[in-house]
Simulated assay, not measured.
Amino acid sequence: MRPVRERPRAGYATEFADEYDRWFGKPRTTGATVEALVSLAALSGGGQVLELGVGTGRIALPLRERGLSVHGIDGSEDMVRQLRAKPSGADLPVTMGDFADVPVTGRFTLVYLAGGTFGELADQESQSRCFERVAQRLEPGGLFALDAHVPEALAAATGPDIVSEGDDHLVLCYRRLDPSVRRYHSHYVIHADGRTRHLRVDFRYTGPGELDLMARRAGLRLKERWADWSGAPFTRDSAAQVSVYERP
């Protein structure tokens, strides 16, 4: 094992952008997410769609293939470069910037985040600002959908998870919570190309109650809550949540 210096959050999208889809883009989860968002887009009127943290286009490009008009926001040029290299990726409009500020003009009938991206916002202030800016960009009747871990399930989890594995690589993740600042640290151990690397990525976790409060303060109301993008019921045993908010 060749030790390496732990990298800050800014290096995550830079170093692993070219492997992101292979390691994290699980086809079944991606497919369920796309189907759910297609249904939500139809429910909200079928207008313009915005993804916060569009990254490599894992979700946005399949949505465009389904006939939706999708715009993206992202802060990583390396991730967007992967998007541009994909078929039709050069045609997807992307605004570079902090998605907490939602730095775009116009109105949207659906705004969404997927893959736990909301937790990348470092504090309650930036997360609340994201809700407020989304509400300003939504059409009346528009929807805001996002997924997140359930904090209690994070706290109860033990041992590492296998994120991805194959003949040529193994990616493990161990999460450690810090309740004093409502953050969790995801430690990734990545063995690929004959060497083993360690990367720590920090997230801020939010429970259903805190998300609902942010939404209400932004003028949004809860419409749906599922256990995952397949639409499974959210129960006391759910480890994750998908919350859908509506602008009245």
Score class of each variant (00 low, 15 high):
residue 9 R to M: 11
residue 58 R to Y: 06
residue 44 S to V: 08
residue 169 H to N: 02
residue 109 T to F: 05
residue 18 D to G: 08
residue 240 A to V: 14
residue 174 Y to I: 14
residue 2 R to D: 15
residue 208 P to C: 00
residue 169 H to C: 02
residue 246 E to G: 03
residue 129 R to M: 13
residue 50 L to P: 02
residue 211 L to E: 05
residue 162 I to Y: 07
residue 181 V to E: 11
residue 238 S to N: 02
residue 188 Y to P: 01
residue 10 A to K: 12
residue 145 A to P: 02
residue 195 R to S: 15
residue 234 F to V: 08
residue 238 S to L: 06
residue 90 A to Y: 00
residue 35 E to L: 03
residue 127 Q to I: 14
residue 94 V to E: 00
residue 53 G to Y: 09
residue 129 R to Y: 12
residue 218 A to G: 03
residue 57 G to A: 01
residue 221 R to S: 15
residue 231 G to I: 09
residue 247 R to I: 15
residue 246 E to L: 11
residue 48 Q to M: 11
residue 198 H to V: 15
residue 107 R to S: 14
residue 18 D to H: 15
residue 169 H to T: 06
residue 51 E to M: 03
residue 209 G to E: 15
residue 78 D to Y: 05
residue 111 V to H: 00
residue 161 D to K: 12
residue 23 W to E: 03
residue 219 G to R: 04
residue 169 H to L: 03
residue 133 R to N: 14
residue 212 D to G: 08
residue 150 V to N: 04
residue 55 G to S: 13
residue 45 G to V: 10
residue 190 I to M: 04
residue 189 V to K: 05
residue 68 L to Y: 09
residue 201 V to N: 10
residue 4 V to N: 15
residue 40 L to R: 05
residue 212 D to A: 12
residue 164 S to M: 03
residue 56 T to E: 00
residue 154 L to P: 05
residue 108 F to Y: 15
residue 30 T to G: 11
residue 46 G to K: 03
residue 132 E to N: 08
residue 190 I to R: 00
residue 139 E to M: 13
residue 124 Q to W: 12
residue 217 R to C: 10
residue 236 R to H: 12
residue 89 G to A: 00
residue 2 R to A: 15
residue 67 G to W: 06
residue 91 D to W: 03
residue 131 F to I: 11
residue 130 C to S: 12
residue 6 E to H: 14
residue 206 T to R: 05
residue 61 L to V: 01
residue 36 A to R: 15
residue 166 G to E: 08
residue 68 L to E: 05
residue 154 L to E: 06
residue 242 V to D: 06
residue 174 Y to K: 14
residue 6 E to M: 12
residue 56 T to K: 00
residue 111 V to E: 01
residue 228 D to S: 04
residue 197 R to I: 15
residue 118 F to M: 07
residue 190 I to S: 00
residue 184 Y to I: 01
residue 116 G to H: 14
residue 27 P to Y: 08
residue 53 G to C: 10
residue 208 P to S: 06
residue 115 G to F: 13
residue 81 R to F: 01
residue 218 A to L: 05
residue 176 R to C: 04
residue 183 R to S: 12
residue 30 T to L: 10
residue 42 A to C: 09
residue 242 V to N: 03
residue 113 L to W: 06
residue 22 R to I: 13
residue 132 E to R: 13
residue 193 D to C: 04
residue 183 R to H: 07
residue 201 V to A: 09
residue 193 D to T: 11
